[in-house]
Design a binder for these strands. Structure first.
Lengths: 114, 114
DNA sequence: CAGCATCCCTCCCGATACTG
DNA sequence: CAGTATCGGGAGGGATGCTG
C-alpha cells in the first residue's frame, strides 16, 4: 500500500487512482464476479498480459482489489474487489449512466449532421 | 466534437473522457461556478497555462464544457459546464464520497503501523 | 495457467518564451 | 487577460519471448 496519496483532496486521490487506462473496465468486470486472470483477459481482449498484470498489481497496491493465489499445478489466481473496491460501485453506476447518455448524445448529433 | 467514441461501452467512453490528469478537478470546480481562465488557474496552482489550455480545449471538444469568449480588451473568457457536463455531477459526488473514504482508510492503516 | 524480463515508443504533460 | 509556439522529458502502455 503506497502512502503518497495522503491527506489530499478526494478528487485528487480519485484522479490518481483512475489514471490507468483500464482501471475502470477492470473494476466493472470484478464488480459482479470474482475472476481468474484468464477470464479477465478474455473479457478485455484489447489488453496484453503484460499490461493486465501491471494494472492488476497497481490496483492491488492501491488496495482496490484482492489477489488470491492457489498453490497448485496448474496455477490458479483469482481477483476480487476489496472492501474499498466494493464501495466504488456507486461510482461505477453513476459513470455507466452518464457514459450511456454521452453516447446517446453523440448519436443524435451525428444524425443531425446527416 | 470528435466521433471516434461512437457505439462503445459506457465504461470505455467514460475512461477515455477521464484520461486527462486534471479533468476531474476541472469538472469539480466548474460544477459550482462558471469560472474565468484566471480563476481556474488560481484554483489549480499545480497546472501551467499551457496544460490548462490544452485540457480545456479537449473538454470543450468532448462537449463537456462550454467556452464563452467576450470580444473586449482586456479579453474575458468564461468556462462553464454544458448540459452533459451538468449530468456528470452524480459521478463527482460518488467519487468524492469514495475518495474521502479511501483517504480515511489510508490514515487508519498508517496509524496501525505506528 | 499466470505470470516476469526486456526493450521500445508514444503521448501526455510541463517549462519557457512570446502575442493580440 | 488569455492565450499560442516550441521544445523536451518521463511515465504509462505495448510487443515479444521465456518460465515454474
Amino acid at each position: 500500500m503506497q502512502e503518497d496519496l495522503f491527506g489530499e483532496c478526494p478528487y485528487v486521490t480519485a484522479q490518481k487512482l483512475l489514471t490507468g487506462k483500464w482501471t475502470l473496465l477492470i473494476m466493472h468486470h470484478l464488480s459482479t464476479n470474482t475472476m481468474r486472470f484468464n477470464e479477465l483477459q478474455r473479457a478485455l481482449p484489447d489488453l496484453t498480459q503484460t499490461t493486465l498484470t501491471k494494472q492488476l498489481r497497481m490496483m492491488e497496491d492501491n488496495g482496490m482489489i484482492i489477489r488470491t493465489a492457489y498453490n497448485q499445478i496448474p496455477p490458479k489466481v483469482e481477483y476480487s474487489l476489496s472492501e474499498l473496491g466494493h464501495h466504488f460501485k456507486p461510482v461505477l453506476e453513476a459513470l455507466q449512466v452518464w457514459g450511456a447518455e454521452y453516447i446517446g448524445y453523440l448519436k443524435s448529433n451525428k444524425c443531425d449532421n446527416l
